[in-house]
Amino acid sequence: MKEVVQGIPLNYYLALSTVLFSIGVLGVLFRRNAIIILMCVELMLNSVNLLLVAFSAFHGDAKAQVFVFFIMIVAAAEVAVGLALMVLIYRNIKSLDIDFLNKLKW
């Protein structure tokens, strides 16, 4: 497997992560459905995970992979609470359109 890693330059992973992250941001800006926005956030988290694993393999340090592990943990917890909030919001305003959630202002 050694040549597999050596076969792909680090730059490629940088580029891929950048593109995925930007698509995630685009999704957050583009859509109004709160659940899709949450999914795009997951996408952004995963692009960062990918970059961490790439750097971990290139540096030969397993600590970065442990951090990926922790990011997954936090993401799972976040999704659990986030979706519970979605359900609650939907129950109250019968919609998940973020443009309706504009009560919190001056």
């Binding site: 800006l29 109004r32 973020i98 443009d99 959630l101 504009n102 009560k103 919190l104 202002k105 001056w106």
Partner: peptide, 17 residues
């Protein structure tokens, strides 16, 4: 400055990016 607090989430995210 409170006029910036529109309550519109899309606007906030846009500003953040």
């Amino acid at each position: 400055f409170r006029r910036l607090q529109t309550g519109n989430i899309g606007f906030y995210i846009f500003t953040m990016v």
